[in-house]
Amino acid sequence: MAAKRAPSKKTPSELGRRRKKNPLIAAEIETVDYKDISLLRTFISDRGKIRSRRVTGLTPQQQRQVATAVKNAREMALLPFTIR
């Protein structure tokens, strides 16, 4: 029987993965406003879907703020529900 190995503690860069930079922290934005359409468009795909946290690099709290802001902007007719 082979001996068990201890799990290695490697950082994402050592594993070949890179973390995506958080765009809200880079722009020094603390809260997401539904009226900031240019910011919200960066978090929407070309088909009109809200991009996932894995793609955007946001924290869970920021992703919830972005999702709520996008939904509010759609209700206020600032953003389209679908893009042709």
Rank of each mutant, 00 (worst) to 15 (best):
A3E: 15
L79E: 08
T68G: 07
D46H: 13
N22A: 02
S8L: 13
I29T: 06
N22E: 03
M76D: 15
K20N: 10
A26M: 11
L79S: 07
R74V: 02
I37F: 12
L58C: 01
A2L: 12
V70G: 01
A27N: 08
N22G: 01
K71G: 00
E75A: 14
A6F: 05
R54G: 04
S38H: 13
T56G: 02
A26Q: 14
S13Y: 07
A73Y: 05
P80I: 04
F43T: 01
Q62T: 02
I83P: 03
D36N: 15
L40S: 04
T11E: 09
Q65C: 06
D46Y: 11
A73G: 04
S8R: 14
T82P: 03
K35G: 00
D46M: 10
R54F: 08
V55R: 01
Q65R: 05
R17A: 11
K9C: 05
A2F: 14
Q63V: 04
K71S: 07
P12M: 12
T59W: 02
L40V: 07
K49H: 14
L24M: 01
S8T: 12
K9I: 04
R41H: 09
L58V: 05
S13H: 09
I44H: 02
Q62I: 01
E28K: 14
I50R: 03
G48S: 06
K20T: 13
R51N: 06
V32L: 12
L79I: 11
T68V: 15
N72E: 10
R84I: 09
I83G: 06
I29W: 03
G48H: 08
Q61I: 10
D33C: 12
A77K: 15
K21C: 00
K10T: 14
P7R: 08
R19I: 08
I37L: 15
K35P: 00
K49R: 10
L79N: 09
R64V: 09
L79R: 01
